[in-house]
Amino acid sequence: MRTEEIDVLVSEVGPRDGLQSVDRTMPTELKFRWVDALAGAGLREIEVGSFVSPKRLPQMADTGQVVAHARGIEGLNVLALVPNLRGAQDAVAAGAQALTMPISASRAHSLANIGKTPEEAIREVSRVAGFLASRDEPVSLEVGVSTAFGCTIQGPVPEDEVLEIARACAEAGADSVGLSDTTGSANPAQVRRMFTALRRELGERAGGAHLHNTRGQGLANVVAALDAGVRTLDSSQAGLGGCPYAPGASGNIVTEDLVYLLESMGLRTGVDLEALIEAREIIREGLPGEPLYGHVPDAGVHNGFVYAGSQEVTR
């Protein structure tokens, strides 16, 4: 496990975004082992599950147990996705250190995803923020504006509407507000433009990027986000995941490929690629036959690869 300071935070979402998109359910004990292995590889932030109705997503029924287990890992920031106040209360009771709330810029997607209009969802952000503010132990609230770059149900989403929703979420009490390419529709010029505008609107409360590789644009969009000052990037090991309520929204960015890209660019992630690639075996054990993606796991690192900040050459 690498322990140096980092330049970019890679936020792993596989145990949530990845597993919620798979029809089968990974056994709880294997989820424990997977989270352990991801943290052991140096990942410092993991979204371990979501507090939603098990009738809707039975894959997430054991999230409370996974959160409690993950809290025992030193140095790990444990995230959980919540759609509403009830989910936030359950997540905090389980020990989550940070909550993420998806607020869709697309009205059609918002209704399909959480059964609320964007305006109703923003009011829920306010309720959750009020609940968290009433507690002594700090728990951060992060909002991801989903379908920020386009929607497979609605089509194009006006950029000014995206920024208006982001601003409203910050005013409602979110600690940070990021943008999500839920449907893999974004291009680098759009990503650079939108995150530049987000930082102009929200300053230090402008959050990270959740980008998909559905149409092969994922890592190009990462570079554009970096150019715009983004320093937190979501990804999923082996590219698992996508929104089950957005048709065609497959293809999270592969964590292994993202780490390789960042380190190759001289940006420290603190992640050990070899240990990260080994963690894929737990997915194979828990979800046999599930497609696993990634160029780096297949090809390996190139001769002469050097981790950012290191003098040690890999051969």
Rank of each mutant, 00 (worst) to 15 (best):
S104R: 06
A108N: 12
A96N: 03
E120S: 01
Q89F: 04
P83A: 03
D90K: 12
A93W: 00
Q89M: 11
E119S: 10
A108T: 15
M101I: 14
H109R: 11
E120D: 10
A98V: 10
A121W: 05
A96C: 05
L79H: 12
N113H: 06
M101S: 08
A121F: 08
S110R: 07
A93I: 00
A112Q: 11
M101L: 13
A108Y: 08
I122N: 08
V92R: 01
L79W: 15
T100G: 15
I103H: 11
S110F: 14
E124A: 06
S106V: 13
S104G: 02
L85N: 09
A80C: 09
G87E: 02
A98S: 15
L85Y: 14
S110I: 12
R86T: 14
A98D: 06
N113Q: 11
P118G: 10
H109N: 10
S104N: 03
V125S: 08
N84V: 09
S106C: 14
L81K: 01
P83Y: 01
S104M: 08
G95W: 07
V82I: 11
A88I: 02
S104P: 00
A96M: 08
T100P: 04
A105T: 08
V92F: 03
A108E: 15
L85K: 12
P102H: 13
I114K: 09
A94Y: 04
G95R: 07
T100S: 15
